[in-house]
Design a protein around this nucleic acid. Structure first.
Lengths: 296, 296
DNA sequence: TCATTCAATACCCACAGAGTATGATAAGAC
DNA sequence: GTCTTATCATACTCTGTGGGTATTGAATGA
């Protein structure tokens, strides 16, 4: 039995006339007769009673008509859904983020993707950089967001945004009174750094900027994420360089001040990471949104 | 797209290897490759990622696998149900009965049929003989039960049972004292007759039996059915000839007495009536049960 | 570096589905 | 009653496609 048999059967059942059904199906009458006979023979059931006025369904035929319509509808639905899945419009994507990445770009980006692909379920996982890389290789996630990504053999990176850096200081700190803080000032104040864990990280970026200017920062404390870092600034542990997006994090008694006289490349990138050669259409759609987001 | 495509696709998806899937399907590898390619092309969707180790489903492929399995299960179920319908094991049959036919044979027969064909819904309609004939011609029913059926052009009859006749008399009636009542006694007592309506009927049977013996019965009253007839006997309207099965109808103050010295053919048939050339397998199964019931 | 193991391609054959022409049958028209 | 017309079924031919064999291409692992 074939889907063709079902299509033909439904046509004949609806027209109650082989000739009309044949022309509706754009074939001639004899092959249609044969197909119906074949179907009946294969089922071992008489589906129609033949009269000189046409064909009428038997009771078994009525039942089979219902079933045939169901099957055809299901087939249509299956192709439609599969095609949507193939276009990245239906399905699921697992995305890794890191602690403070949720502060700015990521939520906007996810919102944009959700609006464009409402039937794609986005599952978020909070992971460190090392965890993201492993999860990508094990195919537990399709894309991860992070900073300071070094090139890798099997993983591709793409820059999402770039942000300049600001200094988080206590409101009652002497530096807070300045309009903008000269970068060199950093050598005189203890620094809170983040994140701990996998290198290279934002920590190395800050240390690198300092050494470009010929000094080594005084490290007051290393912490896991920007939130904790700013909290320690409030607690008097020193000052802390943060990406601009972290300023959405308003903390009582802490202000974010711009710096002047900064070294070149005084900014930090947010990138995403995915498997080389991953042909998933959902990933492609996701990266498409990422790219358009980066432009704006 | 074909059911074959689905069958092949499921095999490949399950084996994750075209060669193994091909041997499972008892075909060689190249045609299977081509069928899968065809399917992908028709859907416009990549269902598998090809690796040198085999084929693994894409996300869209996973979805399509679900759908394909559903469709195949539905097809299987459809053929199975249709075949059961074609064998008269599934469906519905509309059966007409007349008033007092429900007294004996019909319920037993329906019970036997129900037991043998539990998935066939039997719908009962109470109709007079004329109504049954019209309903049969209009295909509103498939079979009717009645007595005294004359041969008809387009309808077939089949005898179900034959019953002898008994006389319903009041318990305080002089005849009730006799062991058995000589038939000729009937000419001295008023008779209650049933049913009114379409001729020939049971009434004609009784009158015929009397005239065979050379007398005309005194007709006390004509009523619609046996129940009313026996009720009038209880009320003193006279005596009433009833088929044996009516004795299940116990009425206070009425007894059923056998007759002696009866004319030949002193019994009445219960027959069923159906369309000539009706090929419905459910009717065939029903008539099969009727035939076997008649034997026992 | 070579053997192994996949899928993909090239090419051929046979069968089944579609076409044309015709037959069989019953219902209406006159 | 006869003829026409509608229906479905059959006979026969042809072509497209599914399936077969042989081979190539690509990647992995010994």
């Amino acid at each position: 039995m074939d889907l063709r048999h079902l299509r033909y059967f439904v046509a004949v059942a609806e027209e109650e006339n082989i000739g009309r059904a044949a022309s509706r199906l754009h074939i001639s009458q004899p092959p249609l007769t044969r197909q119906i006979q074949q179907l009946e023979e294969e089922l071992g059931v008489t589906l129609f009673t033949r009269t000189p006025r046409g064909m009428t369904l038997t009771q078994a035929g009525e039942l089979f008509l219902d079933e045939a319509r169901n099957i055809r509808a299901l087939v249509e639905q299956a192709t439609e859904r599969t095609q949507r899945a193939g276009q990245g419009k239906l399905g699921r994507i697992d995305v890794a983020i890191f602690g403070s990445a949720i502060l700015d770009a990521i939520p906007k980006l996810l919102l944009a993707f959700r609006n464009r692909h409402p039937d794609v379920k986005v599952v978020l996982h909070t992971m460190t950089k090392a965890e993201q890389i492993e999860a990508l290789r094990q195919r537990r996630i399709s894309v991860g967001f992070n900073r300071m990504l070094a090139p890798l053999e099997d993983l591709e990176t793409r820059q999402v945004t770039t942000e300049k850096l600001l200094l988080a200081v206590r409101a009652d700190h002497p530096l807070a009174r300045l309009e903008s803080i000269p970068f060199a000032e950093l050598q005189h104040h203890p620094l809170v750094l983040f994140p701990t864990g996998a290198r290279p990280s934002f920590i190395d970026k800050v240390i690198g900027l300092c050494s470009e200017r010929g000094f080594q920062p005084k490290i007051s404390q290393e912490v896991g994420d920007a939130v904790t870092g700013v909290a320690l600034v409030a607690g008097g542990f020193g000052v802390c360089l943060v990406p601009e997006s972290a300023t959405t994090l308003q903390f009582p008694g802490v202000v974010y001040a711009p710096l002047s006289d900064t070294p070149p490349n005084f900014h930090v990138d947010l990138s995403c990471l995915y498997r080389k050669g991953d042909a998933s259409p959902i990933l492609a759609a996701f990266l498409q949104t990422v790219a358009e987001y980066g432009k704006s």
